[in-house]
Design a protein around this nucleic acid. Structure first.
Lengths: 153, 153
DNA sequence: GCAAATTATATGTATATACATACAATTTGC
DNA sequence: GCAAATTGTATGTATATACATATAATTTGC
């Protein structure tokens, strides 16, 4: 479905506006899709992202701040996400002995197990993307350019 | 800032994965930017979108369902958005006499006034986008292609 | 013409973001 | 070495999404 069909709109004021709205719309489609993918595993998209970041550390504990920094979503609230993951026993939260303000978060064996299950599901979903390598590169470059000179944080 | 810098990640498994994440990330940047733009006017991004849809009807009342259909965000909750706009006296909600299940939503004079103020702000923001018409078209096509064969709604 | 199905909207719950603020622990500037 | 500033995390509030369910009004099938 094209953007015009979805929005039931005949035309846009500018081509840039159409591209802009298409980015936002496409992201919401992709997000919804991923959310549904994760649902059977009892994980939200953001909870999954946190687990991925933790796995990437290979056992080294990670602070809340570092998780926050690496989240795709700007200004998400890592503290509360960790709460949920802790409830599910997928991560462990310990006060850092060197700096009692900091928390040391590590992924549990159980957390790694869930991630492993999800890897396959995600990979098969991503293989549905119809872009060639060249197209993917081009899309990537255009998005980087779109963000240029935008004054957001 | 490139996606790699933002995510502090050296490489992605596939170019498609990088493009995919870049769409999601870019959209969150754009959304945040717009949200901040609207904040001084006491409107959220979604509330603004609803007002835009209503203005597009040139005074013809619109049902909740039609608003829902036209929202960029799939499965958003138009009913509650209208609540907020009604509280602010920017829209009027009346029961449709022909079909008492339906609501007839119209934008108020005050609502139109707020939109008018916002038009300038939005236009100036969109003029910061660094894409040429050709690039915008290409981006649009690539996004449409990315969504193809995705099984979401 | 009435029961059953459908439609339009509303509402409850869980999750998440954005922002402001709070608060304790640590670092700094003198 | 102590007050002031900064840092790391938590929490409160408003907004929004996603989903399930509820309810009233309308349409349909017989």
């Amino acid at each position: 479905m094209t953007l015009e069909e979805q929005l039931k709109q005949k035309e846009f004021k500018t081509k840039r506006q159409r591209a802009y709205l298409n980015v936002v719309y496409t992201a919401s489609v992709l997000n919804l899709e991923q959310t549904r993918l994760f649902k059977p595993f009892g994980l939200s998209l953001q909870q999954y992202n946190v687990l991925r970041i933790l796995r990437g550390q290979n056992g080294t504990p990670v602070s809340i701040g570092l998780i926050q920094e690496r989240m795709l979503d700007i200004q998400s609230n890592a503290s509360r996400l960790i709460d949920k993951l802790e409830d599910k026993k997928l991560v462990i939260r310990k006060v850092c002995p060197n700096d009692k303000r900091q928390m040391e978060i590590t992924i549990t064996h159980e957390g790694l197990k869930v991630l492993l299950e999800l890897d396959t599901v995600i990979a098969s979903n991503e293989s549905n993307i119809q872009l060639t390598d060249g197209e993917a590169d081009m899309l990537n470059d255009l998005l980087n350019k779109l963000r240029e000179n935008q004054k957001s944080k």
